[in-house]
Structure formats: structure tokens, C-alpha cells
Design a protein around this nucleic acid. Sequence first.
DNA 1: ACGAATACGAAACCAACGGTTTCGTTTCTA
DNA 2: TAGAAACGAAACCGTTGGTTTCGTATTCGT
Lengths: 217, 217
Amino acid sequence: MLAKVKRNNYFRNGNVVIRGPKTKVAPRPRGRPRSEQARQEVLKAAYKLLSDKGFNAVGSHEIAQAAGVSSATLYRWWKSKEEILFDACFERMNPILAIPETGSGLTRLRRYILRASEFLTSEEGTVMARVLTGIHDDQRLRRMFLERYVNQRRQIQRAIIEDSIALGELKPTTDPELLIDMLSGPLFFRWLQGHAPLDKGFAKSIFDKVIPAFQTQ
Amino acid sequence: MLAKVKRNNYFRNGNVVIRGPKTKVAPRPRGRPRSEQARQEVLKAAYKLLSDKGFNAVGSHEIAQAAGVSSATLYRWWKSKEEILFDACFERMNPILAIPETGSGLTRLRRYILRASEFLTSEEGTVMARVLTGIHDDQRLRRMFLERYVNQRRQIQRAIIEDSIALGELKPTTDPELLIDMLSGPLFFRWLQGHAPLDKGFAKSIFDKVIPAFQTQ
DNA sequence: ACGAATACGAAACCAACGGTTTCGTTTCTA
DNA sequence: TAGAAACGAAACCGTTGGTTTCGTATTCGT
């Protein structure tokens, strides 16, 4: 019962196509160009509705109306309501999550975890939770979520951990994947399940209990 | 747009009302009694559909048809499709989750965690994940989930941990809530996010890394 | 045994939703 | 200026969650 895909310019980025070196600029297509404003209005409206009502409670016509756009336009550029909300979420998160963290070793790791716990409890964090739970039954969206959010976040942590190992702060036998899960898992647990508050004190406790298990000495 | 509640015998248990000592048997109501068979057929069908298609993909009429029951009957006894699926889930889980665990101390805790990881990866566990994510936007259902699942599970772990403290295996300063979250959180993390496999080896690693932080000596 | 009370199934019904399509208009390139 | 492609407005369709009606079945109190 799903819509047939008409186009797949889902990842199109304006008129510029990013390629390797010795690139030819992609020729601008013939007709009327896509309205960048419409795109932004859609994503903005979608995010607003998402944070107001939750993933399953927003309607596609509702998004169109709030964005001042026709339903046809929506489905010209997105495959489904879910993907609109999904994109809307990340359009907004990317700047928030981009951290040019500097410093070195365990201090950075600790900062990272504390920031993560802050983010999860923020307004944006709860929107993210709605997205994560809202897409759970859709295999395709889950994979995209892993690529666009989870894996990126893990890569950052992995890099920090590997630095810490190189600096001799963490044992060379440290398994970065295990350490990441031990640090983030408990935060995630409280975040989604809500059985207890997720505050900075909790994040600190986790860090202070987990790190010694991997520390040199 | 939610249905008005007509009755609230949501927790009715046949005709017997459980009370304290010196109980009067509740008088049987006048008319035709509720069909216990219909109730069970509904929950059975709902669980089947839930495990086949996912929380959001099952329709109320579909449940009615599969159970051989009219839509009217469905909404005479449940407020919404969500509550049917919710009940269906727990009707099935309760016997599975009831563990008369014996033994003592850290061995029990370890067994508990390994069993938990087994459960989460089982068929029933993935159904549970669908329920947990499916109800996330509904405050009321989330509270019920906490009461009927989360808190019960935590209570079991808490008891084991307190035993371990009393036995001198764990430090008297051990915070049971923190320890529970450190053990279960990482499992939960992989369970719902699926960035890496949740197997017995992982559960063991978690246990072996976490426990020393709370152990005497 | 009979009437009140209540549950039941069948099926019609409704509003809302996700998604599609048509059509006339607008904005761009060649 | 012609062809290409996006646009908004709005009708349209099939399905869904949920309600209601109605005639039937089952049980209790008397």
C-alpha cells in the first residue's frame, strides 16, 4: 500500500553535486528550480508540529497547511510523512550536535557524556525520543537513523576513547564499543523509560563508576 | 476525540473481587456475564497480530475479525486499540517474567542479567520493544507500563542487590538504583537502538566490568 | 417462568487520515 | 519564446479508528 517512488533526489543538495576531485559542476536542470523556501517551511512546520504533538499525531495535510504548501509538493519531495518528520528532526539537530570539542583524554570524554545527558533532557532531546520511538517499526528509517545519528555520535566517542588509550589514560585492552555502551546505555535507559530522573548527577555517577574499570593503574 | 469511558472494570477479575481479610464475596451483577472466552480470543489475536505486524500496523477491525468478535465488544471493554495491544502483551508476558529465582548473592544477580538479555532478544522481547516504543507518546500508557513491567523488574533486582549487600559481597555504600541502571542500561541500549548485537557475551562483559566497582575488596 | 438487565454479533455509519491525481500557473533554461 | 519542471488549489480514493443501532442470547431476582 506504500507510494511508488517517483524520484530519488532525497539527498540532493541544492544544485551542487559533491563529487571527488576534478569535478564538473552539475548542469542546472531545465525547468523551474525547486523552491528552497518551500522546503524550509515544510521542515520548520514539521518540527514545530512534532514537538507539539508527537510523531504519530501529526498529519500530512496539517504539515502542508502549516507550511503554506500543497500536499502535492510534499509528496513530490518526500516519500512519506515519516520521512518528512525524520528530515525535519535532523535538519534541526545537526547544528546542535556538531561539537568542535577540543582538549584531550578523559576530560573530553567526561564533557561529552555530561553534554549528552544535557541534550537528552532538553526540548530537542525529547523530540529526538519521539522520532526514535516513532520509527521503530520501520526497518528502513531505523537504518537511516543509525547512519545519520547513532553512528556519527559513536564515531566521536570512539575517537576520544582511542586518543585516551594512546595517551595511556585507558588500558590498551579497552574495547571502545563496550565502553561507549556502558557510558551511554544507562542515560538512554532513563531517557526512554523514565523510571528515574536523568540529571547531571546521574551522568557523573555513571562516569565515575565506569571509567576506573578501564583506567590504567 | 477520545472515546468516553463507559465503564471502568478494566481490572475486573472474573466475578471475584480481591479484598483484605473478612471479605464479602462481591454480588454477581444482574445481566448476562461478560464472555471470558471472547476476552481471551481478543487478547490472543491481538498478540498474534502484534508480533506479526508491529504496534502501529494492526487495525481494530482486524483484531475483531481475527478474534471472531464484533467491534462493539472490543470497545465495550477497552478504551482504545492501544490498550488492547498493551493488555495482550502483558497477559502473555506475566507467566514468562515470573521467575522464582533461588540461590544467593552475586550469582543470582548474574543469572538475572543473563536471563534478561536472553529475554530481550527472544520473540517475546521484540514484541515488548514494539509495545514500549508504540506507547511512548501516551503518558497514561507509559505510567501503566512502568507499574506493570519496569517497577516490578526493578524490585526483583533491588531485592537481590540488597541481599548481596547484606551478605557482604557488595559494599554497603552501593546504590541499588545506580547499579540496576548500569547493568540493564547497556542491554536496553542495544536492544532498542540495534547498533550492535545483544548477545550473552555482551551481557557477561557488562556484568564483569560493572560489578567490581561495587564489590568489597 | 417471566421480566429486567446486560452481554453478544452483524453491520452500517462517520469523520479523519495518508496518499494520489488533475489542472492551470509560475519560473526557470536554452 | 518554447520546453521543462516546480508550484498551489482542490478534488479524489481507500482505509482506519471509533460509534451506533438493532435484534439475539444469557443470566439473575422474583
